[in-house]
Amino acid sequence: MSLLPLTTLGTTAAAQLRRRQLVVISTGMGMAILLFALPQFLSNAYQTKIATETLLYMGLAVSWTLFSGFSGYVSFGHAAFFGLGAYVTGLATQRHDLGLVAALSLSFLLVGAFASAVGLLTLRLRGHYFAIATLGLAEAMKATVDWGHSYTLGTFGFALPIDIVNRAQETKYYVMATFLIVVVAVGIAILWSSYGLRLIAIREDEIAAEALGISPALTKISALGISGAFTGLFGGLFAWTQGFLTPEAVFAPRWSLELVVMSIVGGAGTLVGPLVGGLVFYLLPEVLIENKVILQRRDELYLMMVGIVLIIVMLFAKQGIFGTLQRSRFWPKGFRL
């Protein structure tokens, strides 16, 4: 058999991909602008607060997806990173008089390093074992914070310095929106890069990926580091927007669980999924509360409704809301978002 002439196969496939990516990027920019214009349309500070918190949830869910969604290693321990980030920002401003920017950077870096270290220890565990090892992580962190109360200011938590916390709700919204856009941009950069493809390959078949020369350890640990860093950053932002924190609040297992649920019900392994999930699980209940359908978050009706939504989605749209759309025939095959 002789050598075939050079083909243009790969080039056309790649060009098509690039065109689609451009469409997404321009749409994304448009949505980013809308996000910044939104406060103009909100009628009061309370609504702005709700909007800020929705963005926080979305940001957290995207951060979770950067590791767990792409690599398939489900983490139930992101509350540990979230809480640690909140505590780093809290203690840095409260005890060490750092400014907000320095404190948030510290949250980002320290939690990133911590998450990588956790990865180093636990990522030898495959599949379910990793998931379960992370279950105890947040509890262990909380217990550590309780235990080191002379430094961490103990079980009852503390308030952040007033001059740092005292900002207009709008300012907090804009900061949160900026970081949400940053984390989504990072997510897209990862998803469309060969690094992202390597992560997905590990999710699909780790043994085959390794046999092709992909280092599972390096890929997974770095991804967990990035994911943890952003989770820590949003933890810091949470501490800042709330103004106070307690171990009970920031290390609550519900953070871990809700991130998993939002991301997977929104669309497992996709970037749009966690955004959809954030809307469904944070904004929707708030709208219902505002309209007096349910009285408060976590009351019985809320629990029943969320429970039933989860059951229905998992029975009829196993890939999650956006995930199912992406797998349908209306979506170009292999175009990941």
Partner: peptide, 11 residues
């Protein structure tokens, strides 16, 4: 997640 839904609904 399905069972988590069951859990919440039962609660």
């Amino acid at each position: 997640i399905l069972l988590f839904g069951v859990s919440l609904a039962v609660q």
